[in-house]
């Protein structure tokens, strides 16, 4: 295969699959940011609770994966609503940085709540999915499934936003917050719905991540920061930009991790992020004015 050796191909494919899940994570965060103009720093912790929900429903209560998944998605959706009503809506009128810091407090709270409730043991579903071999390249079935489900989730969100009345209202609010209230749209109701959808996307990501990773109270720290950087690089609130950025990041981590350690993959990704902020501070797809 010449200069394209087989490990590089495998790393590229794995990067693509990782990108799917990261894109899904970024999508939920971008939706919240685009509509409510708030960055949920604790987004990855919602995912962590979703992973625990999967573990408890599927393993402890023995409900099976396909019953546990919708329950977990609904549960995290409700958490999103609670977060909005309890923390975000009292702060809607204050400085954006206060909202950011308050969700930082929620991050601490959720991490510790998980420590207190579930302990610090690593837990997993105990499902071992097979590995598929395509032309000498090994692809994990779990990653393929996650990639497919992430794409399906994104298409569903796209249809929801473009084909339904509520979706149209959500898009309208993200374009102009003041005018829509004057047009007779109940912004509070739309915010609650958006928070529920954002939470549900975190729940979906949790169902997919729990197939590949063990869950523990600090698991959010391993993909939370990277999700944020993806959203910022894509332009906060810009879903297509976030989608592209997710794949760029995933490839950097995956290929960087191939030649050096995985940590260096992350270092490259972070450095790339900072460098990109200087080249395109408004995000990848921003129109220069």
């Amino acid at each position: 295969m010449g200069f394209l050796d087989i490990f590089l191909v495998e790393a590229l494919v794995n990067g693509l699959l990782l990108g799917g899940v990261l894109a899904l994570l970024a999508l939920g965060l971008n939706l919240i940011f685009g509509v409510i103009d708030v960055a949920w720093i604790c987004y990855a912790e919602l995912v962590m609770f979703g992973m625990y929900a999967m573990y408890y429903f599927a393993v402890v209560y023995g409900l099976g994966y396909w019953i546990a998944a919708p329950l977990s998605i609904a549960g995290v959706g409700l958490m999103g609503v609670a977060l909005h009503l309890l923390v975000i809506s009292p702060l809607l009128a204050s400085a954006p940085i206060n909202q950011l810091l308050a969700t930082g407090g929620v991050l601490f709270f959720l991490q510790s709540l998980a420590t207190v409730m579930f302990g610090i043991d690593f837990r997993n579903l105990g499902i071992r999915l097979p590995t598929i071999e395509v032309a000498d390249v090994f692809i994990s079935y779990a990653r393929l499934l996650a990639f497919g489900a992430a794409l399906a989730g994104m298409v569903a969100l796209y249809l929801f936003l473009t084909r339904t009345y509520v979706g149209t209202a959500i898009r309208a609010i993200s374009q102009d917050r003041q005018i829509m209230a004057l047009m007779g749209v109940d912004t509070r109701r739309i915010y609650v719905i958006t928070s529920a959808v954002g939470g549900a996307l975190a729940g979906l990501a949790a169902c997919l991540l729990v197939l590949q990773y063990d869950v523990h109270p600090f698991v959010g720290l391993s993909f939370g920061p990277i999700t944020f950087m993806i959203c910022v690089m894509g332009g906060l609130g810009n879903m297509i930009g976030g989608f592209i950025a997710a794949f760029i990041f995933a490839e950097i981590i995956s290929v960087g991790g191939l030649y050096l350690d995985l940590e260096w993959g992350y270092v490259f990704a972070f450095v790339f992020f900072i460098a990109m902020m200087f080249v395109r501070p408004e995000g990848l797809l921003a129109r220069r004015s």
């Binding site: 960055a39 940085i97 940590e263 902020m277």
Partner: peptide, 26 residues
């Protein structure tokens, strides 16, 4: 210089603390 402020500044610096942590581990 490029007027990265507010949220964006907080998130760029978040990347900085991530980099230092990962470099120490790596």
């Amino acid at each position: 210089r490029f007027r990265i402020t507010g949220h964006y500044f907080a998130l760029v610096t978040l990347a900085l603390s991530g980099i230092v942590l990962q470099v120490i581990v790596a």
